[in-house]
């Protein structure tokens, strides 16, 4: 039985979520029942709320795909752009208006396939943008096609005999390209996701968070992995906290903050120095 104090606290938490939903937007959302995208959305809201960011100063930018529909439900500035281009649009928003907090919501197909070039260059620039890549290993919106994170051998509607290609490791890619904050979490580990997202948004530089998420509708069904809860269970069993030795990790996927670099300079800061020096030159 829950105590009154617990139910009041629970009520307050859900009020937080409600207060960040768009007042005019009609629900339900378009995601399948049990989709991990909703879990990421509520975690994002808690992270923003915890950081106390004024909501007028937050801009959400997304591309195309199931996860990219998220900004329509949240009461922030929102730009739902074209397939793969979210980071290029976000770069324009942030570089033109460094005072804004810019957060990109993207998926594995959006960010790593059609948008791969924009991703590596945004990482390289170390522009102060937070990218949340919801990785469900498949193209969900178009009905279950192979993506750059689909494991070798896995089934998709365009790999009916098993995937013959190798997959990307998104976090390795982001780190290699120059992102200064890289983390991985899953939709099973929501308390960790809350912390990781808050840390990523607070990081001054390009932060990249990969959230492993369930598409039971396509990835789960085509690969006989079971229901949404079975996939969540899989994320619990196949992951382990970052920092373990190879032996104790036992082949499990590390989750948590994988890389944090506080030395590298941020793009908008560096450019501002040039603007400032030129305006001083003019005065002098």
């Amino acid at each position: 039985m829950t105590t009154t104090a617990e139910s009041v606290a629970e009520q307050r938490r859900s009020d937080v979520h409600l207060s960040y939903l768009r007042p005019h937007k009609k629900f339900p959302n378009l995601w399948c029942p049990g989709c991990g995208n909703g879990i990421v959305m509520s975690s994002l809201v808690r992270a923003i709320d915890k950081l106390g960011l004024p909501r007028d100063e937050v801009a959400l930018v997304s591309g195309i795909g199931c996860s990219s529909r998220m900004p329509v439900y949240l009461d922030f500035q929102a730009l739902h752009t074209t397939h793969g281009r979210a980071l290029a649009f976000a770069t324009g928003v942030k570089f033109a208006r460094p005072d804004l907090k810019v957060i990109v919501i993207t998926g594995d197909g959006d960010a790593l396939s059609i948008g791969g070039n924009h991703l590596i260059h945004a990482c390289r620039r170390n522009i102060d943008i937070t990218t949340i890549l919801i990785n469900n290993y498949i193209y969900g919106m178009t009905g279950g096609q192979v993506s750059p994170t689909t494991p070798s051998g896995a089934y998709a509607t365009t790999t009916p005999f098993g995937n013959t290609e190798k997959h990307f490791e998104p976090c390795d890619l982001a780190k290699g390209a120059g992102a200064t904050f890289v983390a991985r979490t899953t939709v099973y580990h929501t308390p960790q996701m809350d912390r990781v997202l808050a840390d990523a948004i607070a990081h001054h530089g390009f932060s990249f968070v990969e959230v492993l998420s369930n598409c039971h509708t396509y990835f789960g069904r085509l690969n006989r992995l079971g229901s949404a809860t079975a996939l969540l269970q899989m994320f619990k069993e196949k992951t382990t906290s970052v920092g373990k030795t190879e032996e104790s990790a036992n082949g499990k996927i590390p989750i948590g903050v994988l890389h944090r670099d506080l030395e590298t300079t941020e793009l908008c800061d560096e450019y501002q120095k040039i603007v400032d020096s030129l305006s001083k030159g003019k005065q002098g």
Binding site: A59, V61, L79, T81, T82, R85, A88, F89, A90, T91, G92, V93, K94, F95, A96, R97, L100, N117, H118, H121
Partner: peptide
């Protein structure tokens, strides 16, 4: 593609 995307992003930002 990135150039025009950044331009549109800057435009909506104001």
């Amino acid at each position: 593609i990135g150039a025009i995307s950044a331009v549109v992003g800057a435009s909506v930002a104001g």
